[in-house]
């Protein structure tokens, strides 16, 4: 392609750079979202909600809503990267507070399954049974 004058070729160059930049941003968007990072982002958010849940008073801030948000975001984190025992444990805690006992029970089992720490299975089974009896 031969262009007529200098100005047109400059314009072509500028626009090419713009479109290449757009594609570069697109490629960045696709490849920077690794599952671990996405999971850590959502689990950080969940921890943030959970932390503020303890500080807020019941009347003003609708704490139940915040707990539900925490549960939603930790589930999102697990959808990205389900191999973190800590996150499953956290989900178990939050779900229990939200009174989703079935989710809590499953999450605790998963956390036990994925954890690398030395296992004490009796504690887990006893804990899950006591929760069921309590509520």
């Amino acid at each position: 392609m031969r262009l007529r004058d200098e100005r047109q070729s400059t314009l072509l160059l500028c626009t090419t750079v713009l479109f290449m930049l757009t594609m570069f941003v697109g490629v960045l968007c696709v490849f920077t979202q690794s599952p671990q990072q996405g999971a850590s982002y959502h689990s950080d958010q969940a921890r943030f909600y959970q932390k503020h849940y303890n500080q807020l008073s019941a009347i003003e801030y609708e704490p139940i809503k915040i707990l539900k948000l925490a549960e939603a975001s930790i589930i999102q984190a697990l959808a990205y990267y389900p191999y973190e025992a800590k996150n499953w444990e956290f989900l178990a805690l939050i779900a229990q507070r939200n009174r989703h006992y079935d989710i809590a029970h499953k999450a605790r089992r998963f956390s036990h399954f994925l954890s690398t720490e030395p296992r004490t299975e009796s504690v887990i089974t006893v804990a899950s049974y006591t929760e069921r009896i309590k509520h």
Partner: peptide
């Protein structure tokens, strides 16, 4: 992000 990336490309 990944959807935005595909869209931009």
């Amino acid at each position: 992000l990944s959807l935005w990336g595909v869209f931009l490309i």
